[in-house]
Design a protein around this nucleic acid. Structure first.
Lengths: 340, 340
DNA sequence: CTGAAAGCGCTTACAG
DNA sequence: CTGAAAGCGCTTACAG
């Protein structure tokens, strides 16, 4: 048991001060004179004293740790860079505030509640893929909480998300401006999947605003895999009349559609335009580089964490709800229709 | 302060038992009769009691948390899926053992030492990119530690890594068997970068074993970016005599070399073979799909975590050192030389 | 500016 | 099988 050998008590005795003073020195409190500090610090270094954080946490009821509740692995997860981008941003931001990040895989609401009541964390970030009914139970606890990557409807909960709907609207409108009228939509997962449904809304709204008909046959739904993207792309590209443009829900599936087109001998963008949305850097490196809407997940992670620290430190009066804009990036996979 | 409202003491009073008994019930100890358990559990539910983990940790000196020390962001990190794969595996594995994962960004050895002495964690996983001198200081603490993704030379430290050198040897030998004699190597980062140097060793050994000359001009070094891959690919493919095959240190840079070849009007694999190594699933979706060596980072994460739990529970006598095999995956970017 | 006392909420011996 | 006491190592009032 080397790790807990030296306690504040030992240091106090060696330095001829009280335990209390040692504690203040460790926290660099202005209540201690520089001379005493220097003397105590020398002893601390000499004895190799390291504070036991757990005792500190128990007594002060501040853990200097934020929790991050992640969904368990899903079909989607294999493919998804989303979570990684966010997690990285969260960790960097927490570190800057001198906080640790504690990871918890969501299994049910109870495990999340246990964590919130355990004293292990001061606040909780919740991944947007956690189901709403669990979210409600979690939000009922008395601990700052920020939802990451989606909104919470009418619930009085803080959240930070990207404007998925606006992004989808933007890229679909871009296609329409380029003269496309038959624009298919390749979705993924369940119809209620938050991000997919938001993107689909944007797609539908763009068509409606332009007065274009939304045909049922133009909307198909895969399972997040490259293979499903290929199959659906193939299906749509061999249907008649063939769409002049395809909007694909993820960049991986869009890359698959690119291959389906290639397999069929169709040129992109000359014969068909393909656009997508997401945050994968690979999408610019496929051939041709994909026109996409960039979703700023890193920024979402950072803003959410900043908001969490605000809640910890200031006791925010009402829920804060933040939407970050997306960016249309026109690359080589889309062009004006008919203009070969 | 809702979170700490109900304590074990309150439950004990309400149930008419001692605080001790409540503690045993929460831990589901066989020392308590089923009747008492049921009665106490009912009260626990009724009162909404949640154990304060921090007090438990302080008293029992077991945090039920493992630490994961990550390197700070580097140029390499932007591109790297490595860490994400590993982290996911670690988290899933920890969850299965009923442990949390605490993230810590490496700034210096001292911060790692503080964490190890803080009582917050029972054991520590260290990312392979942490420098050796810091690793030594960390390993000197009395806490189980496993190094992830690289070996530790002669140091008596447990580690789990993939056979990067063997993988590089394998894919280079594959090229040689296909008749290639001028095989260039595109590296990245600093010469001492562990993974890069291991891969380079495998490359050199394969050439040596085959009795092929290693020419200085065939070895170039980029900076992990797509752009540097493109530039170096372009340079090598316009050099004379042109290499018949290129082995590229990362899959992203290999995708860039593919584009350089396309830009030059060279066909892959007819005019030049391009092979790589890594764990990015994207490499199979570029055109042509890349021949690669699959590095099992997920398995590395899982094995490392399992090893860590062994160290926690059994007090392993000597360091365990595990090398996981890589797998050559021949796809469409390489072929027999001259056989057009 | 420093010290002595109390206590955060558990678990761990130990006694019955 | 259950209970009463001690204590993990800090921080927080409070007193001087």
């Amino acid at each position: 048991m080397r790790k807990s050998r030296v306690t504040g008590h030992d240091v106090a005795k060696a330095a001829g001060v009280s335990h209390n003073t040692v504690s203040l020195v460790v926290r660099d409190s202005p209540l201690v004179t520089p001379e005493t500090k220097a003397r105590v610090r020398a002893i601390i270094d000499e004895m190799g004293y390291q504070r036991n954080d757990v005792a500190m946490v128990l007594r002060s009821a501040r853990s200097r740790t934020i929790g991050y509740l992640l969904p368990e692995d899903s079909a989607e997860a294999e493919v998804d860079v989303f979570r990684n981008q966010v997690l990285k941003a969260v960790t960097v931001c927490a570190e800057a505030h001198n906080y640790y990040v504690l990871l918890d895989l969501f299994s049910d609401a109870q495990s999340g509640i246990s964590l919130m009541s355990s004293g292990r964390i001061d606040a909780l970030l919740v991944d947007g893929r956690i189901p709403n009914e669990s979210l409600l139970k979690l939000a009922a606890r008395n601990l700052p909480l920020v939802l990451v990557g989606r909104d919470a409807g009418d619930l009085p909960i803080s959240w930070v998300k990207a404007d998925e709907e606006g992004g989808a609207f933007q890229v679909t409108s871009h296609l329409i401006e380029q003269g496309h009228q038959r624009i298919a939509w390749i979705a993924a997962g369940e119809a209620e999947h938050y991000i997919v449904s938001q993107r689909e809304r944007g797609y539908r709204r763009a068509l409606e605003v332009a007065g274009l008909q939304i045909e049922a046959a133009s909307i198909v739904r895969g399972d997040w895999t490259f293979e499903s993207g290929f199959a659906l792309g193939y299906q749509l590209l061999t249907s008649s009349p063939r769409p002049t443009a395809l909007f694909v829900v993820t960049e991986l599936m869009a890359a698959a559609v690119l291959q389906a087109a290639r397999t069929l001998g169709l040129r992109v963008p000359e014969d068909v335009s393909i656009v997508t949305i997401g945050d994968s850097f690979w999408s610019q490196y496929v051939q041709p580089a994909l026109t996409t809407v960039q979703v700023p997940m890193k920024a979402v992670g950072t803003r959410a964490t900043e908001l969490l620290f605000q809640s910890i430190n200031e006791d925010l009066p009402s829920p804060q709800q933040i939407v970050l804009p997306t960016t249309l990036i026109v690359r080589d996979s889309s062009k004006r229709v008919g203009n070969k």
